[in-house]
């Protein structure tokens, strides 16, 4: 071609180029034959590719691993660190969600009773130096938290502030065995004293024997003079069993405390109480019964049997 370049060669070249341009045009216009050609060729090649992958992929992977040895290790370390960070973020997120939920419920409770509260995060659980059941919170005198103030969560009574520092406070939990609170039974208004037992249960001792307690009765805080240490109406727990011993002067009952003391993260300190007693306004709503459909069957008497 260099030596003259015959017409036949040129014609061949031009016709090949035109053919390729024709193919491009067909493909860009979306002609299905072209797609069919590609998928058909892939169908024909795929068994070879599968066989090749089975035989040569391990070899390829080996060489790839060898060449990427340092990088792979670095990549693993990087991914591990990233994974750890994401896991930490997830934990923080769950923690924040839980705190938000607790804060919302405590504010709901405080709002219903019109308590003025200061919310606080639990910064430590329990005491390492004694057997008392306490928590430390991150609000103190700087936030208006004083000794003998009621501490609540969305579920009910947590305890009472025993010590108050500028930025923190020590709260005695209602589960502490030295804890005592004036209580009343929602509805009947019977009064008594509830004592902590060191567990999630307390013991209620009624002051008289006029009425009888029953399982499921809700116990509320009776309230103290000038609302210190306890504001009235805070839910404490629910009667789980009643001791009706013959000859007993007063009735006693086991009360399951509402608050889960091992899962406290956000609490509220009641720094201002309402002018009026909320009475039974804070009694938790019981479960709504699900209606069970009934089926009525009508029986039609048959005729008298024939002998």
């Amino acid at each position: 071609m260099r030596n003259g370049g015959d017409n036949r060669g040129r014609l061949l070249l031009i016709s090949l180029i035109v053919t390729s341009l024709f193919l491009i045009t067909l493909d860009l216009r979306g002609v299905r034959v072209i797609d069919g050609l590609r998928s058909g060729s892939q169908t024909a090649i795929s068994p070879f590719q599968s066989a090749g992958a089975k035989v040569f992929r391990p070899v390829g992977n080996f060489f790839s691993d060898v060449t990427h040895l340092g990088r792979t290790r670095g990549e693993i370390e990087k991914l591990k660190a990233e994974n750890e960070k994401l896991r930490q973020n997830l934990i923080n997120r769950r923690n924040a969600d839980s705190e938000l939920s607790q804060l919302k419920s405590v504010l709901d409770l405080a709002g219903t009773a019109k308590y003025k509260v200061v919310s606080a995060k639990v910064i430590s659980l329990g005491s390492t130096s004694s057997f008392t059941q306490t928590i430390s919170i991150d609000a103190g005198t700087d936030d208006g938290v004083q000794e003998n103030m009621t501490v609540i969560t969305g579920l009910g009574l947590v305890g009472v502030v025993k010590k108050s520092y500028p930025n923190s406070a020590l709260v005695q939990l209602a589960s502490d065995s030295a804890f005592q609170v004036g209580a009343r039974v929602a509805g009947s208004q019977q009064i008594g004293i509830l004592s902590g037992q060191g567990t999630s249960k307390g013991v209620l001792q009624l002051l008289d024997n006029q009425t009888t307690l029953k399982v499921g009765d809700v116990i509320l805080a009776r309230g103290s003079q000038n609302n210190r240490p306890f504001v009235p109406g805070v839910p404490i727990g629910e009667v789980t069993s009643v001791d009706n011993a013959a000859g007993a002067v007063t009735q006693t009952a086991d009360v399951k405390l509402y608050v889960n003391f091992s899962a406290l993260s956000v609490v509220a300190v009641v720094v201002g109480s309402p002018k009026t007693d909320p009475r039974d306004a804070l009694v938790p709503k019981g479960p709504v019964p699900i209606p069970v459909p009934t089926v009525t069957v009508y029986a039609t008497p048959s005729g008298s049997p024939k002998p």
């Binding site: 070249l13 053919t19 341009l21 193919l23 491009i24 067909l26 860009l28 072209i34 590609r38 892939q42």
Partner: peptide
């Protein structure tokens, strides 16, 4: 015809000619 080709059919043909 290769499945890994991203361009339109005929592009490689044109280039390779």
């Amino acid at each position: 015809l290769s499945q890994t080709t991203s361009g339109p059919m005929g592009q490689w043909t044109l280039i390779m000619i």
